[in-house]
Computed example of a mutant assay.
Amino acid sequence: MHSMEFDDPQSGLERAVQTLEEEIVLGFLHPRERLVEDELLARFNLKRHVVRQVLVELERMGLVERKRNVGALVRAYTIKEVEDLYAVRELLECQCVQLIRFPVPEEKMQALEATQREHDAQVTAGNLRLVFRANMSFHRQLFALSDNPVLVAAIQDHAQRAHSIRSSSLVLPEQLERARREHWQIIEALKAGDSHCLVELCRAHLAPSRDAYVEAYHRRAGLVTQTEPKHLSA
């Protein structure tokens, strides 16, 4: 990958964090993959203390874990951790959309639809980084309709922690198309003022990324079992 040069350490830190966040959520960086300080120094042309700040921020976001004598690794989850995280995400997000008051102001509906049209365009273009950013923007605007910024912040925090889990589904064309369609269904439920439908759509919207990660986890575990060398008894 090409190195990047930044004059302002703060902008360099933010850009490095954003780039690595995208690469984790898109599966370019895999769970348990090491993030080596020297490689990040060369790639982003940052000072060592700034690179360490990048890793601290990624750890705070739940994307990276740092282990003694190993260094920084892309966060990997057990099946139970995935199920627990998604149970909390479902509670937060479903509660959030139940707080939305109808009718939603027209200017906010128009802004949400404009964001979704941008998401549509990036899905069609196959620009996964911009798909990811438009998707995040759509959900921020949706949950902001609850007028509860504390709850929205909690949702965002838990969504960030799920980034490496979502990589199993975010890059698949059929999953991108499914998510795009579901966004429009959410918009229609908002227009109709149908709170029950909105809750059920949000609950269903979470399931595919969780299920894809669990399936991939079992697939990897099965592959390891099949390829383990068989030791002959003495």
Rank of each mutant, 00 (worst) to 15 (best):
His2Trp: 12
Ser3Thr: 12
Glu5Tyr: 13
Asp7Asn: 14
Ser11Gln: 11
Glu14Ala: 09
Arg15Cys: 15
Leu20Ile: 06
Glu22Arg: 09
Val25Phe: 07
Leu29Tyr: 04
Leu29Met: 07
Arg32Ile: 07
Arg32Cys: 11
Leu35His: 03
Asp38Gly: 10
Glu39Pro: 06
Ala42Leu: 12
Phe44Arg: 01
Asn45Gln: 15
Val50Asn: 03
Val50Ile: 02
Val51Asp: 03
Arg52Pro: 05
Glu57His: 08
Glu59Arg: 10
Arg60Cys: 11
Met61Gly: 09
Gly62Cys: 00
Gly62Asp: 01
Leu63His: 00
Glu65Gln: 10
Lys67Cys: 12
Asn69His: 14
Gly71Leu: 05
Tyr77Trp: 15
Tyr77Asp: 12
Thr78Gln: 04
Ile79Met: 12
Val82Glu: 05
Val82Asp: 03
Glu83Asp: 11
Asp84Glu: 15
Asp84Ala: 15
Leu85Cys: 03
Tyr86Leu: 01
Tyr86Thr: 00
Arg89Trp: 02
Glu90Ile: 02
Leu91Asn: 14
Glu93Cys: 09
Cys94Met: 14
Gln95Leu: 12
Val97His: 00
Gln98Phe: 06
Val104Phe: 06
Pro105Tyr: 03
Pro105Lys: 03
Lys108Val: 04
Gln110Gly: 09
Leu112Arg: 00
Leu112Val: 00
Leu112Gln: 00
Glu113Ile: 10
Glu113Met: 10
Ala114Gly: 07
Ala114Glu: 08
Thr115Val: 12
Thr115Ala: 13
His119Trp: 11
His119Cys: 08
Asp120Cys: 05
Ala121His: 11
Leu128Arg: 08
Leu128Gly: 06
Arg129Gln: 15
Leu130His: 11
Leu130Gln: 15
Leu130Trp: 09
Ala134Tyr: 06
Asn135Asp: 13
Ser137Val: 09
Gln141Thr: 03
Phe143Gly: 00
Ala144Gln: 06
Asp147Ala: 14
Asn148Leu: 01
Asn148Gln: 06
Asn148Gly: 04
Val150Ile: 12
Val152Asn: 03
Asp157Ser: 13
His158Gly: 06
Gln160His: 14
Arg161Met: 08
His163Glu: 10
His163Thr: 06
Arg166Ala: 13
Ser168Leu: 09
Ser168Cys: 12
Ser169Leu: 07
Ser169Met: 09
Leu170Gln: 06
Val171Trp: 08
Leu172Arg: 13
Pro173Cys: 02
Glu174Gly: 10
Gln175Met: 14
Leu176Gln: 15
Arg178Val: 04
Ala179Val: 09
Ala179Thr: 10
Ala179Phe: 12
Arg180Asn: 02
Arg180Ala: 01
Glu182Met: 08
Glu182Tyr: 05
Ile187Val: 13
Glu188Lys: 12
Ala192Val: 03
Ser195Ala: 08
His196Ala: 11
Cys197His: 15
Leu198Val: 00
Leu198Met: 01
Leu198Asn: 00
Leu206Arg: 04
Ser209Trp: 05
Ala212Cys: 07
Tyr213Ser: 02
Val214Glu: 05
Val214Ile: 08
Val214Lys: 04
Ala216Asp: 11
Ala216Ile: 01
Tyr217Leu: 14
His218Ala: 13
Ala221Tyr: 08
Gly222Ala: 11
Gln226Arg: 15
Pro229Val: 01
His231Thr: 15
Leu232Thr: 14
Ser233Gly: 13
Ala234Tyr: 12
